[in-house]
């Protein structure tokens, strides 16, 4: 039981990751695909933040009487990864806008049908 509860943040990561992944694969709506992709990426951000935690550690600011600090490096990495994730989402949405202008739909199945016709 403590295995389950003690690592609850990792369980959240796994659930989020699989949710996002499922949306990307199963949903034909392109906007939903982008959302799924972003949830998928976000789960990895939480994972990185989780591994940064040092038991009993505080925020990494030098203070008298404190000797244990959490690891700040993963936070910095994730700041970069968030920017990358945002850029990906923005580009994905921009593409969806263009696809809608060109095809008149954002449903993957309809797009396939239109592609086959030509």
């Amino acid at each position: 039981m403590s295995e389950l509860l003690g690592h609850y943040n990792y369980w959240i990561v796994i659930v989020l990751m699989m949710t996002g992944f499922y949306i990307v694969i199963a949903r034909p709506n392109l906007i939903k695909k982008v959302i799924g992709l972003f949830i998928f990426q976000t789960s990895v951000f939480i994972f990185f933040i989780s591994i940064a935690k040092v038991e009993g550690g505080t925020a990494p600011i030098i203070e008298e009487g404190i000797s244990v600090y959490s690891n700040p490096l993963p936070h910095v990495l994730i700041l970069t990864a968030i920017v990358v994730g945002l850029a990906t989402t923005a580009l994905g949405l921009a593409l969806v806008v263009r696809i809608r202008e060109a095809y008149g739909t954002i449903n993957e199945d309809d797009i396939h049908v239109q592609d086959e016709e030509r």
Binding site: V24, L30, L37, F40, G92, L95, I99, A102, I111
Partner: peptide, 13 residues
Amino acid sequence: LTAAFQYLVMGTI
């Protein structure tokens, strides 16, 4: 456009 979107999804994964 759809090719780029497909690549975006797979590439990001």
